[in-house]
């Protein structure tokens, strides 16, 4: 017992305890925030977080608040992401439909090279507003964990639906259309 209370074993135990605590903290920190998904599953709508980012390739600031009263399809993407390419025609088609009915698609280009992102938008003839999330602020705010992800925000500013992965016509018809 005396041997166990000597400084060296105590120091070793303290270091081990600190390492275990650090590991536990790291695991908790890396756990994705699923509160939006849980709210939707429970039939509730969580308020969309505030988001204001610079325009992709521009200088003006785009804020979600500017679109309050509209249905917003907020799409997080990046130019190197293949599923993002596949869903782009669907988003552009729906943006054109939404414009006349009080809605819009907004793209958030995440952690991407601006030139590559602008080429992407040009190649796929995307006309909807694009934000540039250069340091992952939007990713953290919305709890984005993969590419692409889409949040459907109703006219009251609440998240009505979320798609982790690419959207398709079916998702847009079932989740966006009823909000218009």
């Amino acid at each position: 017992m005396r041997r166990l209370l000597s400084p060296v074993p105590i120091a070793v135990l303290a270091v081990l305890a600190a390492l275990v605590a650090l590991l536990a903290y790291g695991l908790v920190q890396n756990e994705p925030d699923r509160s939006v998904d849980q709210a939707i599953e429970a039939g509730k709508r969580a308020d969309a977080p505030k988001l204001s980012l610079p325009e992709l390739g521009g200088t003006r600031q785009i804020s979600l608040d500017d679109y309050r009263g509209k249905v917003v399809v907020l799409n997080f993407w990046a130019s190197w992401c293949k599923p993002c390419r596949d869903e782009s025609p669907v988003l552009e088609r729906w943006h054109r439909r939404l414009q006349d009915r009080g809605g819009t698609v907004i793209g958030v280009d995440m952690l991407d090279v601006t030139g590559d992102a602008l080429d992407f938008a040009r190649n796929y003839k995307l006309t909807y507003p694009m934000m540039k999330d250069k340091d992952g602020h939007g990713i953290e705010t919305f709890g984005v964990v993969q590419y692409p992800e889409t949040f459907v925000i109703d006219r009251g500013g609440s998240i009505a639906a979320v798609q982790r992965g690419p959207v398709d016509e079916r998702f847009m018809r079932t989740q966006v259309e009823p909000l218009l």
Binding site: A78, W80, C81, K82, L111, D112, V113, G115, D116
Partner: peptide, 10 residues
């Protein structure tokens, strides 16, 4: 990683 490849190209 494709993002890393793009960053390298940049």
């Amino acid at each position: 990683a494709p993002q890393a490849q793009r960053e390298r190209a940049y």
